[in-house]
Design a protein around this nucleic acid. Sequence first.
DNA 1: TTAGGGTTAGGGTTAGGGTTAGTGACGGTGCAAACCT
Length: 509
Amino acid sequence: MELELERELQKHFRFSTFRTGQKEIIQDVLNGNDVLGILPTGSGKSICYQLPAIMMDGLTIVVSPLISLMMDQVKEMKANHFKKVIAINSFMNFEERREIYRNIHTYKLLFISPELLSQDFIIHLLQRVKVSLFVIDEAHCISQWGYEFRPDYLKLNSIIEKLGNPPTLALSGTATPEVQADIMTSLNKPEMIKHIYPMDKPNIAFCIEEVENDQEKNDMIIQLLKKYNIPTLIYFSSRLTAESFTRFLSEKLQGRRVGFYHAGMEPMDRVMIQQQFMNNQLDIVCCTSAFGMGINKGNIRLIIHYHIPLQLESFIQEVGRAGRDGKSSVSLLLFSKSDMLLPNHLIKSELPDAKDLSNVFGYLRDLTLQDMDLPKDDVQIQNLFNLNETQWRFLRYQLEKHHLIHDNKIMDYNKTWEDIYQSIFHVINSRVKLKISKLTEIIKWIHEDRCLRDTLYQGFQPTHSGAEFQCCSNCGFTWSEWTPEQQEIESNLGLNWENKLKKLLLLDI
DNA sequence: TTAGGGTTAGGGTTAGGGTTAGTGACGGTGCAAACCT
């Protein structure tokens, strides 16, 4: 068995040895166990399901949060001469999708979103093939997105059951013990075998600066970026500010290539900015939290937070994109007292409040009394109830869970309505409370006097390595002592046309 | 009396991604149309 695994790895991926954690996870998976694997990004998480998928009979299903991640995976595997892999999404046309459904039994590996996987038709289709392994990639999304933003993540447990309870593998790069427990509870698999590996970054120095206002933030950033010409990400909690700051930087830093990135942009523009940054054709990207998942660029040297993330988990994920190559990198978080308004607003806008909830129940009751269904169009419902998209999605999930609505039919009015109201009201309250406490946690960390590295990681893992370079602003970090490797002017400069062509072709296999 | 510092209030803002209808596959049964003698 031992040697056999290495032989399979060599045969299919041309690696002679496994990286940390891979083999242990794969062995447990092949033995039919449910496994939770926390491996740092860039450590080859995907091998953990790709190799079992090849070796096992039947189909491996991989739930992935982003279509772009699915595409990357399929492209990579096909480049590795593995052809029995496919991703389904709603952008494919009818014919393409029908072709996949017809040939579903010929694939070994299927990438799919939780939303598509929640559709009855897809479940019926997959019930006809043997599902050998069920994988949740970026499994922290269950905890981070499932409760409000993408409730279909919470339906995975019932989907796994409908598929005959295949062995389940949940993978993530960052998950606190709290998030790990949340994943297992949500999947209804309390007995998962855990393989947890440290994700602290010894090569990143943590720096926090309190300022009076945004003007001071701007001055400080300009001063820094004038000194350092290095691949830099600046995180914002506002799309508009990210855009306007990009213009500001372009003005102040002549010759520096600056771009912005957020979820409100055209998909083509997003791909372009990401590619340019990856290929060192952009120096600085001003972005929202949309930027990052699946970005594998080794030489990001500086991550600046212009606004405070809503939780330490997000901060760690965003900061973790620096210094993947192991070289000295810095995280700088800027904050002023007035910054508290923004995260508070974001938390509130995610969930309906008490007034919204009683409004909705009133409307629903009126509709049943008139023997009417909910409108078919969700936008119409949102307008009717005066909720935003996320609030209504959260509420729809809750109402469906309590069987008060099904599709667009509303349950007849009876005395259980009051219990359901109370139950949803309770969920909202505890979610808001939890989010506020997470925000409080990061605020507390920002005001910490002790070592920032120690206090940041203490909730995430039992121990962590010390700093490899400078530690943090509480341990005497100084900018004057920081001399990062400066960026080469143009990454392709050293390549002749033949190598450039090879590089291009490799990128597009 | 005035410049300057500190505080507060008020205005309008605010992240994240997927999806939308149709679709597959199989065997058994019942029935009607087509074909053969």
